[in-house]
């Protein structure tokens, strides 16, 4: 395949565990009260798609940005997962929610991402690339939560093109795959790495003797292409589609362009199926083309508001009355 097509990214979806709304409600009553100052929150996403075996080979569920009871404090990142830092703007009334300066808040997060690229912080702490925004109104009397996520992706002037797609297992032999997995695990074993999202965006290179080296973005000079190898940038991919990468590689591509003026690169969509033995059969390599001039320092445009259940740009509603409202609980249990 050598037909140039426009690379299409699958957007990221949010999934909010009810424990998040519960802890926000409690925090609102006990501490936050009427303040509506934006708060830092912490979510996570995973590169591990759950694929149930035997009866259903074809079901693959993408990973979502997830929030849970720890999201207000950032205590725990589950296994197979990486952090995403967010900004929560929770209003006190539905009117305030409607009147929010959405564009301003969205730009604020986009600018944080862009600044982390400009000052190089994102190379040391790649989770800065996947910062998100959550605006919400919590109707504490009815246990109804109105919310709207945005995952800002900086835009380049030209579209990004896909020139070739191949299975990782067609590029690496069995021993090399094994070596990649082992070396990737080493990155994961350092807790500080997980905190910074270092294994979320990484580099790899075939070595001699069936080895594959795995490195961090800071090691770019060592990993960029030479006469034997192409440059491969891996990312923990929440997406499960065969020909599309997930949303979270977008800001990394912008970083590659801005920092090193990269025009051709191969991305590895790292997708692992959990099981007794790691299964890398879903990993994809995609050769992409990033055309255009060197980028200026001006904040690019960005996109990334999540669509609602009707597929339109708009807020969502989680009605937790049936599981959280003490009055309703009596109703349904007696």
């Amino acid at each position: 395949m050598d037909n140039k097509t426009v690379l299409q990214f699958q957007s990221l979806s949010s999934l909010v565990d009810p424990t998040f709304w519960y802890s926000l409600t409690k925090e609102k009553i006990d501490n936050i009260k009427l303040s509506d100052v934006p708060l830092d929150i912490y979510g996570y996403y995973s590169y591990n798609s759950l694929q149930s075996s035997k009866s259903n080979d074809n079901i693959k569920v993408p990973s979502f940005l997830q929030l849970n009871s720890n999201s207000l404090t950032n205590e725990i990142i589950p296994s197979f997962s990486f952090p995403m830092k967010g900004l929560l703007k929770n209003t006190n009334t539905i009117e305030d929610f409607q009147k929010l300066d959405k564009k301003g808040l969205f730009e604020k997060v986009s600018k944080k991402i862009w600044d982390s690229i400009l000052n190089g912080e994102a190379i040391k702490c790649p989770s800065l690339l996947n910062q998100f925004l959550l605006i919400s109104f919590s109707d504490l009397k009815k246990y109804k939560y109105y919310y709207w996520f945005a995952f800002p992706a900086l835009l380049l002037e030209n579209p990004i093109y896909l020139t070739n797609t191949q299975l990782l297992s067609d590029y690496l032999n069995k021993n090399e795959l094994q070596s990649l997995h082992e070396n990737y695990q080493k990155l994961l074993e350092i807790p500080d790495n997980i905190k910074k999202g270092i294994p979320g965006y990484f580099l790899l290179k075939k070595d001699d003797n069936n080895h594959v080296k795995v490195g961090t973005l800071s090691e770019w000079e060592m990993f960029k292409s030479d006469d034997k190898n192409k440059t491969i940038v891996g990312f923990a991919d929440p997406c499960v589609l065969p020909n599309n990468p997930g949303w979270l590689i977008r800001n990394l591509i912008v970083l590659l362009k801005k920092k090193w003026n990269v025009s051709k690169v191969t991305i590895l969509c790292y997708r692992e199926i959990a099981g007794e033995y790691a299964d890398l059969s879903q990993c994809k390599l995609m050769d992409i083309e990033i055309s255009g001039e060197e980028l200026s320092d001006n904040l690019p445009k960005s996109v990334g508001w999540e669509k609602n259940i009707k597929g339109q740009f708009g807020p969502r509603l989680a009605n937790l009355g049936p599981t959280m409202d003490p009055n309703k609980l009596i109703e349904s249990a007696v």
Partner: peptide, 11 residues
């Protein structure tokens, strides 16, 4: 609500 055009969006 202003929709910014995204050439790399997936339907």
């Amino acid at each position: 609500f202003e929709i910014v055009d995204d050439p790399n969006a997936l339907n």
